[in-house]
């Protein structure tokens, strides 16, 4: 046996309700174990998950090479415009998408809305996004995700948020960025903060400074055990994607170059007027991000005049990233 320092299972040996043990043909099987849930996210790596609102969009995404689709009632850009309370997508649409694509299907639930998540788990989605794009249902706490067999992805702006979500059972993290803006600046900022904070605890670990690591855990508001494990493996113990404002192939390549494992594209594709070409181009740029000539080819496939018009972050009334930071 060797230890694979990419998929960490520390803090995960607990027997939570999400773990289902069954006997099939005399053999014990374990569904919803941490390895099965985190492992699912590992299969998405180097891929693009696309926001869709109906079956047609889901099929365009699949044809373009999306590694998964995220079903929403409205794209984040339209959530901003519509105002009011944003809730999980209609189950009828989710079920239709489940029946028509072969790639993983995800859906968003409101932060802290355990029962929206239970409903999504029943519908059979492959992953649940406890998302700040929707109106939070609990201002104090997130869902206790160990109770679910279905894996969760959660947003984070820094290392503390990411680790707190992991401690609650998240199997995957994504940067929050600022959803629905077509502006990549916040995603870049969140990824850089995370990398810098990670680097700090790695140095403390390598110097064997236990006292400062304990202090770091207090500042991050997570257990010392999780901080230690993260520092030891020199990365988040779960897969980490970029999200929130990615709109072009070059945006996706930029995020990959910052060390993300893959990208989510929300409004960027279906709020543009060239969704088919753009979806395909973003997929190509995500895989070939380290080959600038191929990223240039991908960038040529899209037309800047057809990109979604971005939003200036300074004039935003609603900053979705400030939801669910506790």
């Amino acid at each position: 046996m060797f230890t694979l320092d990419l998929i960490s299972l520390t803090l995960s040996q607990r027997e939570a309700p999400g773990l289902r043990i069954e006997i099939i043909e005399g053999l014990q099987t374990r569904r919803g174990s941490t390895l099965v849930k985190r492992g699912f996210a590992h299969m998405l790596k180097h891929g693009v998950v696309m926001d869709v609102t109906n079956v047609e969009q889901a099929q365009i995404a699949e044809d373009a090479g999306a590694v998964g689709v995220m079903v929403l009632d409205k794209l984040p850009y339209d959530v901003r415009k519509a105002g009011g309370v944003a809730r999980t997508a209609s189950l009828k649409v989710i079920e239709e998408v489940l029946d028509h694509v072969t790639i993983p299907v995800m859906a968003k639930c409101r932060i802290g809305h355990t029962w929206e998540a239970k409903v999504l788990e029943e519908s059979g989605v492959d992953m649940i996004d406890e998302s700040e794009v929707l109106t939070p249902a609990d201002e104090e706490r997130h869902i206790w995700k160990w109770d679910f067999t279905t894996p969760f992805v959660c947003g984070a702006r820094d290392l503390g948020e990411a680790l707190r979500r992991i401690e609650e059972g998240a199997s995957m993290i994504r940067t929050k960025g600022e959803p629905g803006t077509g502006n990549v600046a916040e995603a870049v900022k969140h990824m850089r903060i995370l990398n810098n904070e990670l680097r700090k605890i790695v140095v403390l670990y390598e110097e064997g400074d236990e006292q400062e690591l304990v202090r770091a855990a207090r500042d991050l508001r997570v257990s010392y055990e999780l901080v230690l494990e993260t520092a030891r493996i020199r990365r988040l113990p779960v897969v980490n994607f970029a999200a929130g404002g990615i709109a072009t192939p070059a945006d996706a390549a930029l995020m990959m170059s910052l060390g993300c494992d893959g990208v989510f594209v929300g409004s960027g594709i279906f709020k543009s007027s060239d969704p088919r070409a753009r979806a395909e181009a973003i997929v190509i740029a995500t895989t070939y991000w380290d080959k600038p000539d191929i990223v240039a080819e991908a960038q040529k496939m899209v037309d800047e005049t057809k990109a979604m018009s971005g939003l200036d972050l300074k004039t935003l009334e609603l900053r979705m990233q400030e939801r669910g930071t506790g």
Binding site: T29, R31, L35, G39, F40, E121, D126, P151
Partner: peptide, 30 residues
């Protein structure tokens, strides 16, 4: 997707006799 979707994904211990593996931790994901 022979076993179903992610919620049906599982791990189990299997034997792989030609490679000399007993109770090998096999992870089946979709």
């Amino acid at each position: 997707n022979t076993y179903g979707r992610q919620r049906d994904s599982f791990e189990a211990q299997i034997d792989v006799p030609p490679l000399g593996l007993n109770n090998f931790r096999a992870v089946f994901i979709r």
